[in-house]
Simulated scan of single mutants.
Amino acid sequence: MIVVTRLNNSQFAINPDLIERIHANPDTTLVMVDGAKYIITESMTEVIDKIAHYRARVIALTHEISQSVPSVGGRPLGLVSPIDTHSTQDTVNDEDNGVTSIGPRKL
């Protein structure tokens, strides 16, 4: 979330992923994907910088978290790897680790 300021000087946080457009004519207006519009005091450049910093922070936190991910049964927890499309197995049960992997259906 980024924090922006309304014309009455009240601040609010908004999800930058839901901003569709930013207009600066003369007031900066955020147009959201659902059509809602917010007129704010920050300039377009300031909003773009806030969004860039927000996204950089998300990436940095993701990297930081991935460095300290715990492991289960000797395997690190993390992102799921892509399904092997050449496999003919529906599921693989790994009872030792309590993991069930789902693969493509048998034809």
Rank of each mutant, 00 (worst) to 15 (best):
I14F: 03
D90V: 09
T29P: 09
S81C: 13
N9D: 13
V69K: 15
F12M: 02
A24E: 13
D94N: 07
P82A: 05
T100V: 09
L107N: 10
I2K: 02
Y38F: 12
N15L: 04
V69R: 13
D96R: 08
D34A: 02
I2Y: 02
V69Y: 15
V47I: 05
A52G: 06
R21M: 13
I19L: 01
D49P: 07
E42K: 08
R55N: 06
V80N: 07
R75G: 09
S68Q: 15
V69E: 15
A60W: 06
P26F: 06
I102P: 06
E95P: 12
Q67P: 04
S10C: 10
H53V: 13
Q11K: 14
I48T: 13
A36R: 02
R55P: 01
V47T: 03
D34Y: 02
I39Q: 06
V47C: 00
P70I: 10
L7D: 11
P26R: 05
S81Y: 11
E95N: 13
T5C: 01
V47L: 02
N97H: 08
D17E: 14
T41D: 10
P82M: 03
K37C: 09
L61M: 14
I59S: 09
G78D: 01
D96Y: 06
M1N: 08
E46M: 04
I83E: 09
D49G: 06
R57C: 07
D49C: 08
N8K: 05
F12A: 05
A13F: 06
P26Q: 05
P26A: 10
D17M: 07
L7V: 06
L79E: 12
V72G: 02
S66E: 06
I65S: 12
K37P: 04
G98V: 01
N9Y: 11
D96T: 11
I22Y: 06
T62R: 15
V92D: 01
Q89N: 14
I40W: 03
